[in-house]
């Protein structure tokens, strides 16, 4: 901001008029992109961490390449193999069941787990699952939240009452508790709603659960935004020209929700990845032997005293990814809406 002491601001606002107009435009949600992009471009930390996230995604996509290089698959056991490290032969897993620590070479770059599987390969395949679940779940969240928020905000009245009250009930459940409860109840039999059928052990179960759990956090702000948007002139104008509710929602409201969604999306993905890890850690998420950072951590923590790399490696990868998303998301929020207070729980 321009001046530390606010008491002088009222008298100076006409002097700094340009910024006032930009802010008014931003408040109207129109033509606010250019200054937002400029603000984001100035935020070096956000850009660096944003880039880091894309590097991590690229690494996950390259998982099969590394598997080929390491000559294994994420599921293959090498319990009885020996490999040469620094010129000496070493067992992948000792007779006491202690897996090899990082070799920093092609095979077992990040060591092995207790089943003699290559941690680096599993880490990259795990990244695919964690990122896929995180991103897909967040897309589900956005779709559901936009649907519910727009319906509630646009039609108000009974529609709003029903949707808002239902969301309020979901609000009573912490994300983890609700996620685990759903995870346990769906673990065995899976889910069948109409044409949608998911088997018990599928990774789409945690994806769907995480997607649903965070709907509340986004639907509320979207509803608020729609409530204020529907009173704006351009919506009135569209209505006066005889546009139906659907037309108005799709062509007038939706484009104006973009900034709200954009602000939340990176933070949603970050939280979805964290929740996946927590669910899998508790056994209510991704089911082994499928790798994900959460399942790898769950297996690793038990062996912390003998093979700390099994905990440290996936944990660091997870923290790095989530941190990248959070820092980037923080930058996006500051750029788009300097005064917003977005916050998701752990």
């Amino acid at each position: 901001m321009s001046i530390a002491d606010p008491s002088v601001q009222p008298d100076l606002s006409p002097v700094l008029g340009d910024r006032g107009r930009a802010e008014a435009a931003a408040a109207a949600g129109i033509g606010a992109w250019a200054p937002a992009v400029r603000r984001l471009r100035r935020n070096k930390a956000a850009l660096i961490f944003g880039a880091l996230f894309f590097v991590l995604v690229a690494l996950a996509l390259a998982a099969p390449l590394w598997a080929q290089l390491a000559d294994t698959t994420p599921a293959r056991n090498h319990l009885s193999d020996t490999i040469v490290v620094d010129g000496r032969p070493e067992q992948v897993v000792t007779l006491d069941g202690v897996p090899i620590s990082p070799t920093w070479q092609r095979k077992f770059f990040l060591g092995a787990d207790s089943n003699g599987r290559d941690v680096a390969v599993r880490l990259l395949y795990g990244a695919r699952n964690s990122l896929l679940i995180g991103i897909t779940a967040s897309i589900i969240t956005v779709l559901l939240a936009v649907l519910l928020g727009t319906l509630a905000g646009y039609f108000r009245g009974w529609t709003d009452a029903i949707i808002s009250r239902s969301l309020e009930v979901m609000w009573a459940f912490p994300a983890l508790l609700l996620g685990v409860a759903l995870g346990v109840s769906l673990a065995l039999g899976g889910l069948r709603i109409g044409p949608l059928e998911i088997e018990g052990g599928s990774k789409w179960i945690p994806t769907l659960i995480i997607g649903v759990v965070y709907v509340v956090y986004l639907a509320r702000p979207i509803r608020g935004r729609v409530l204020s948007l529907r009173e704006k002139e351009f919506v009135e104008a569209a209505r006066a020209q005889g546009a139906g509710p659907l037309r108005i929602m799709f062509s007038e409201l939706l484009p104006n929700l973009a900034s709200t969604i954009l602000v939340f999306f990176p933070l949603l993905v970050a939280n979805a990845i964290l929740l996946e890890a927590a669910l899998s850690f508790l056994g209510a998420g991704v089911q082994p032997p499928e790798p994900s950072w959460g399942t790898m951590l769950a297996e690793g923590v038990v062996l912390l005293s003998t093979a700390p790399h099994l905990t440290i490696v996936p944990g660091l990868m997870l923290v790095l990814t989530v941190l990248a998303l959070n820092v980037f998301g923080d930058g996006v929020r500051d750029a788009l809406d300097p005064r917003a207070k977005v916050r998701l729980e752990h």
Binding site: D5, S7, V8, S13, V15
Partner: peptide
């Protein structure tokens, strides 16, 4: 004076209310 003419800043300066590292 109009807003922006410095009249409020003058008044607040007399009270010491405009003191800040930027002033």
């Amino acid at each position: 004076g109009e807003s922006g003419s410095g009249k409020s800043v003058t008044a607040m300066t007399l009270m010491g209310l405009t003191r800040s590292p930027n002033a």
